[in-house]
Amino acid sequence: MIVYDKPHALLDVPLHYCPGCLHGVVHKLVAEVIDELGIEGKTIGIAPVGCSVMAYDYFACDMIEAAHGRAPAVATGVKRADPSKVVFTYQGDGDLASIGMAETVHAAARNENITVIFINNAIYGMTGGQMAPTSLVGQVTQTSPYGRDPKLCGYPIRVCELLSELEGPEYLERVTVNSIPHIRAAKKAIKKAFMNQIEGKGFSLIEVVSSCPTNWGMTPQNALKWIEEKMLPYYPLGVYKDRSNGEVK
C-alpha cells in the first residue's frame, strides 16, 4: 500500500525553490487536492510574479503566468470564459497584499468563484528579501535594514481579517505548514476552498503562513520555529469567514 507518493498533478521535475522552502509543501497539497477531486483535466492554475512564478513548470494542469498582482483579474477572465473549469491562483504576499491588493479585494468583493492560495512568508523572496506588506514590526529585511519601523512604513497587513469585513467572499482561512498536524489541517482547508468553487459558492482564500529560510537568514528548522514563535502570534490561525455556514470570526 502506498502511504505517500508524488501527486499526479505535480510533474516529476525538480523545483527551483531553496532548500527547506515550504512552497513545495503547499504545491503538494494543492496537487493532492486536485488528484483527490479528480479535476486535473479541467483545472487552470495562475501563478503571477514572485518565487512561484515558474509554477507553470511544476503543475500538470494548464497554467498561466500573470503580471505581478494581477492573478485574481486573470482568474476572473478564465473563469468567466468557462465557468465549468476550476481556476486557482497561487500568490505570494507582495503580489497579493501589495501590488495586487485592489485585484484581491475586488475579486473577493465580487465573490468571484475562484480559489486563491496565498503564501504569506513576510518577505519578498524572489528579489532577494525585501520588506513585504506582511513583514512583522521590527523584522530586518534588505529594505528595512534597521527592522520594520511602523512610524516609517506602517503595520503588517492581516489579509484574512481585512477581507472578512467584506460581504462578498465565501471562505477565508489562515493555516500554516510548519508541522505535520498543521499540514494536514492546511490540506483540509485547501480542499474546502476547491470544493467551494466546484459547488459554485464563490471566492475562497487560504492564507498559508509559510517560511523563507534563505531570506530570513536561518536554517529550515529554525524557520519552522520562527513561524510558530513570531508569525502565528500576529497571524492567528483559523477560519475568518465561512459564509455558507454563517461563520464570521
Binding site: I64, A67, A73, G77, V78, A102, E103, H106
Partner: peptide
C-alpha cells in the same frame, strides 16, 4: 455574454488576458 466593470483599467486588461488565454474573442 459577460460584461464586467472592472475595479481598474489594469484589472480590465488582465481579465482580457484571462479570457484570451482561454481562447475566446475578448
Amino acid at each position: 455574454g459577460t460584461f464586467l466593470q472592472a475595479e481598474s483599467e489594469i484589472a480590465a486588461i488582465n481579465m482580457v488576458y484571462g479570457v484570451a488565454s482561454a481562447g475566446l474573442r475578448v
